[in-house]
Computed example of a mutant assay.
Amino acid sequence: MIGSAGGALSAERYGIGRPATEAEISAWDIDVDRDGRKLPPGSGNIAHGRDVFEAQCTSCHGARGEGGTGERLVGGQGTLASTRPVKTVGSFWPYAPTLFDYIRRAMPMNAPQSLSDDDVYAVSGYVLYLNGLVPDGTVLDARSLAAIRMPNRDGFVPDPRPDVRP
């Protein structure tokens, strides 16, 4: 059964479910880790990102990422240690490749995984641009996105509990 370690047993016992096919597994195996491994081929520029953002993102995140029904994406630099921290991509997010990962798998909320990889590179670049982290005209691809050092990269500390693996 898809998503179940005991899938074959469940199928035998209850007559429902089936093992996931390799194609089904690969379609969902799209995670990108913090250092950018598994970023797909493709690229996107700020201008295209602005267009995609206006068409797909402004209804929730505001025209310039200031927030609305969706989270605020822009600003907040220097507020994390304050009594009113503003957690945004520019202030809180530790790794740029995971921004790509999140946008690709979860946005837009009404149609997750509907953007092309080029669109996701472009939107990621536009959000980074709105936060002053890349200049206008930037073209992002797997190499350049992984090379971006986010302002809060060193703001997280390891969990010291013995039952939590690093």
Results as ranks from 00 to 15, higher is better:
residue 1 M to A: 12
residue 2 I to A: 07
residue 3 G to H: 05
residue 3 G to N: 04
residue 3 G to Q: 00
residue 3 G to E: 04
residue 5 A to S: 10
residue 6 G to W: 07
residue 6 G to T: 08
residue 6 G to K: 07
residue 6 G to S: 14
residue 8 A to D: 06
residue 9 L to R: 00
residue 9 L to C: 02
residue 9 L to E: 05
residue 10 S to V: 05
residue 12 E to G: 14
residue 12 E to H: 12
residue 12 E to Y: 15
residue 15 G to I: 01
residue 16 I to C: 09
residue 16 I to W: 08
residue 17 G to E: 02
residue 19 P to K: 05
residue 19 P to A: 13
residue 20 A to C: 03
residue 22 E to F: 15
residue 23 A to D: 04
residue 24 E to R: 02
residue 25 I to Y: 14
residue 26 S to K: 06
residue 27 A to M: 04
residue 28 W to G: 11
residue 30 I to D: 08
residue 31 D to M: 06
residue 37 R to K: 13
residue 38 K to N: 14
residue 38 K to W: 13
residue 41 P to L: 14
residue 41 P to Q: 12
residue 43 S to Q: 07
residue 43 S to F: 03
residue 43 S to Y: 02
residue 46 I to L: 08
residue 48 H to T: 07
residue 49 G to I: 10
residue 49 G to S: 13
residue 50 R to C: 03
residue 50 R to L: 09
residue 52 V to M: 09
residue 53 F to R: 00
residue 54 E to W: 10
residue 55 A to T: 03
residue 55 A to G: 09
residue 55 A to Y: 13
residue 57 C to Q: 02
residue 58 T to Q: 15
residue 58 T to C: 14
residue 61 H to W: 05
residue 61 H to T: 02
residue 62 G to T: 00
residue 62 G to P: 00
residue 63 A to M: 03
residue 65 G to S: 08
residue 65 G to E: 06
residue 66 E to C: 10
residue 67 G to Y: 14
residue 67 G to I: 09
residue 68 G to V: 09
residue 70 G to P: 07
residue 70 G to L: 13
residue 72 R to M: 15
residue 72 R to W: 14
residue 73 L to G: 07
residue 74 V to S: 01
residue 76 G to M: 08
residue 76 G to A: 11
residue 77 Q to F: 14
residue 77 Q to Y: 13
residue 77 Q to W: 13
residue 80 L to I: 10
residue 81 A to Q: 09
residue 82 S to E: 01
residue 83 T to H: 11
residue 85 P to W: 14
residue 87 K to H: 15
residue 88 T to N: 06
residue 89 V to T: 10
residue 89 V to N: 11
residue 91 S to Q: 07
residue 92 F to S: 02
residue 93 W to Q: 08
residue 93 W to K: 04
residue 98 T to S: 11
residue 99 L to C: 12
residue 100 F to T: 00
residue 101 D to L: 09
residue 101 D to S: 13
residue 102 Y to M: 15
residue 102 Y to G: 14
residue 102 Y to T: 12
residue 102 Y to A: 15
residue 103 I to G: 07
residue 104 R to V: 06
residue 106 A to P: 00
residue 106 A to R: 00
residue 107 M to P: 01
residue 107 M to E: 12
residue 109 M to T: 01
residue 109 M to P: 00
residue 110 N to A: 15
residue 112 P to H: 13
residue 112 P to V: 11
residue 115 L to T: 01
residue 117 D to E: 13
residue 117 D to K: 06
residue 118 D to V: 13
residue 119 D to A: 10
residue 121 Y to K: 02
residue 121 Y to C: 04
residue 122 A to G: 03
residue 123 V to W: 03
residue 124 S to L: 10
residue 124 S to F: 12
residue 129 Y to V: 00
residue 132 G to R: 04
residue 133 L to R: 00
residue 134 V to S: 07
residue 134 V to P: 01
residue 134 V to A: 09
residue 138 T to Q: 04
residue 138 T to P: 02
residue 139 V to I: 07
residue 139 V to D: 01
residue 141 D to L: 08
residue 143 R to S: 11
residue 144 S to Y: 09
residue 146 A to N: 04
residue 148 I to P: 01
residue 149 R to C: 15
residue 150 M to R: 11
residue 151 P to L: 15
residue 152 N to I: 11
residue 152 N to K: 06
residue 152 N to Y: 15
residue 155 G to M: 12
residue 156 F to S: 06
residue 157 V to A: 12
residue 158 P to N: 05
residue 158 P to M: 09
residue 160 P to V: 07
residue 161 R to M: 11
residue 161 R to V: 09
residue 163 D to W: 15
residue 164 V to M: 04
residue 164 V to A: 04
residue 165 R to Q: 07
residue 166 P to S: 10
residue 166 P to T: 03
